[in-house]
């Protein structure tokens, strides 16, 4: 073992691959964003099983359309397969992942260790979240941890990466190469200070932002106006969160039961008036993506739909945001030209 030449050493996660200049990581998402292309991320909802095929089944349709797949961390305080477990499965087959860390369930010792563990697996995007309260989940008797909040977590991970040390000051001999993200929720109070909070996240270390569901484009536009006024769009990549609503009833339920979701009445009325509400929900989502894309300072979209990954994949393809950069698109066009010519 001792005499291994450097080139003989196994490097399954590509950890010795040099990070491109001006980049923090080898993340594909980071590369897409820094090259100025419109980025797409999508959310994978973890299964309640220990079968890897369940993860791959959900990931496959997303892998065709997304630059990175978010693996949620017990979102809504409901217990599922861990984000780290999913990221490791995705890395095995070469899919880009976003490792989500919620501050609700683990303390600083666990989280800092997990970040190193994730980095060796090949995770290069990490999303720092506060996390929903335990009360809304399936095990409300759990002890809420909240040792960090999203912002102190961001600063901690940045310290681990840039200064090569734990919060204790102990040295990390090989710091993790990670691209740091955070969430923002532009459509809920306090509206006036949401951009200030974003500034604080950027200050703490956020390099990309994935927002919660946006259904109220006007509200989001107002938020982005403020973001541009503050020059934040030049310091952080903002990916707007969108998702299809299954029906007017589901929308109403989400609005009252899921924390942090605002669905305007106009959207619910439109769904109620539609013959096929599911189809209308998909249409609304595609329109939202197209409208959001036109807003200055938006760098991409983050598409979410609980356990409907196929639908997410269709929405992304049909919205046209990948037009011209997807290899399969080019192939399809070439094929079309060949048959028509």
């Amino acid at each position: 073992m001792a005499d291994l030449r450097p080139e003989d050493k196994l490097d399954p996660a590509g950890l010795t691959v040099p990070v491109p200049p001006g980049h923090r990581s080898n993340s594909r998402l980071e590369r897409v964003l820094r090259s100025g292309r419109f980025a797409v991320t999508a959310e994978l909802n973890p299964p309640d099983s220990a079968n890897p095929e369940d993860v791959y089944e959900a990931a496959r349709p997303l892998s065709e359309v997304a630059d990175a797949i978010n693996a949620t961390d017990a979102s809504g305080a409901n217990c599922h397969m861990s984000s780290l477990g999913i990221c490791s499965l995705l890395a095995r087959v070469g899919y880009g992942s976003v490792f989500q860390i919620s501050c609700r369930d683990r303390n600083r010792i666990a989280i800092q260790g997990d970040v190193l563990g994730a980095a060796v697996i090949g995770v290069s995007n990490i999303l720092c979240l506060t996390g929903d309260g335990v009360g809304v989940g399936d095990q409300p008797g759990a002890k809420p941890v909240f040792d960090f909040d999203a912002i102190s977590l961001l600063r901690t991970l940045r310290t681990m990466r840039d200064d090569g040390m734990f919060l204790s000051g102990r040295k990390i001999t090989s710091p993790p190469k990670i691209f740091l993200g955070a969430a923002e929720n532009p459509c809920i109070p306090p509206f006036e200070t949401r951009a200030d909070r974003l500034a604080k996240k950027v200050e703490a270390g956020a390099e990309f932002i994935q927002t919660n569901y946006i259904y109220d484009v006007d509200l989001f536009k107002r938020f982005m106006d403020r973001v541009r006024d503050m020059g934040l769009h030049e310091r952080v990549f903002i990916l707007a969160g969108v998702g299809p609503l299954a029906s007017a009833r589901a929308a109403k339920w989400m609005r009252t039961n899921v924390p942090g979701i605002h669905v305007p009445d106009a959207i619910i009325e439109r769904l109620e008036g539609a013959e096929k509400q599911g189809l209308e929900g998909k249409k609304i989502c595609i329109e939202l993506i197209q409208k959001i894309r036109e807003i200055a300072g938006v760098s991409g979209v983050h598409v979410m739909a609980y356990r409907r990954e196929e639908l997410v994949s269709e929405i992304i393809s049909e919205s046209g945001v990948l037009e011209g950069r997807h290899a399969s698109d080019r192939r399809r066009r070439r094929a079309a030209r060949a048959t028509s010519g």
Binding site: G131, G133, P144, F146, I151, N185, P259, H262
Partner: peptide, 15 residues
């Protein structure tokens, strides 16, 4: 309830 030291979370109600 989440002991946040840096600002509100994303779950604030509309009111």
């Amino acid at each position: 309830p989440k002991n946040l030291r840096n600002g509100p979370c994303g779950g604030v109600r509309q009111n």
